[in-house]
C-alpha cells in the first residue's frame, strides 16, 4: 500500500504501537496506517473552526476539584487485592524480571 505524503506512515505506526504497548507485525503497518489516516483526515475538518481565544474544555461540568482530608481510608485487604492476580506468591504479585 502506498504511503501518504502527509499523515501517519508505517514507521509512525510502529512508533505509536510502541508507545501504546501494542504489538504490530510489519505486514500490518500499511493497512493500519491507511485506517488511521482515514479517521484523521475526517478529524482534519476541525481545522476549519476559529478557536482563537477559546479556552479548552477539560471538564463536562464546571466545578472545583473537591478536597478531602489526607487520611488512610482503606487498607488491610492484601488477599482481596491479590485475588485476581495472574501470578502471586507469598503475598506478592509475581511479574517478569525487569532489571537484569
Amino acid at each position: 500500500m502506498a504511503e501518504p505524503q502527509h499523515g501517519v506512515s508505517s514507521t509512525d505506526v510502529k512508533k505509536i504501537a510502541r508507545l501504546a504497548r501494542l504489538h504490530v507485525e510489519d505486514s500490518q503497518c500499511g493497512a493500519i496506517a491507511a485506517d488511521l489516516n482515514g479517521i484523521l483526515a475526517w478529524i482534519e475538518q476541525l481545522a476549519e473552526v476559529d478557536v482563537e481565544g477559546v479556552e479548552p474544555m477539560t471538564s463536562a461540568v464546571a466545578m472545583k476539584a473537591p478536597m478531602r482530608a489526607d487520611v488512610v481510608t482503606t487498607g488491610g485487604i492484601r488477599d482481596l487485592i491479590l485475588a485476581n492476580a495472574p501470578k502471586s506468591d507469598d503475598g506478592f504479585f509475581v511479574v517478569p524480571r525487569s532489571v537484569e
Binding site: 478529524i43 476541525l46 481545522a47 473552526v49 478557536v51 477559546v54 479556552e55 479548552p56 474544555m57
Partner: peptide, 10 residues
C-alpha cells in the same frame, strides 16, 4: 487534542 477541546467549548 487541544484543538478538539477548544471546539468542545464552542
Amino acid at each position: 487534542y487541544l484543538r478538539a477541546q477548544k471546539v468542545r467549548t464552542k
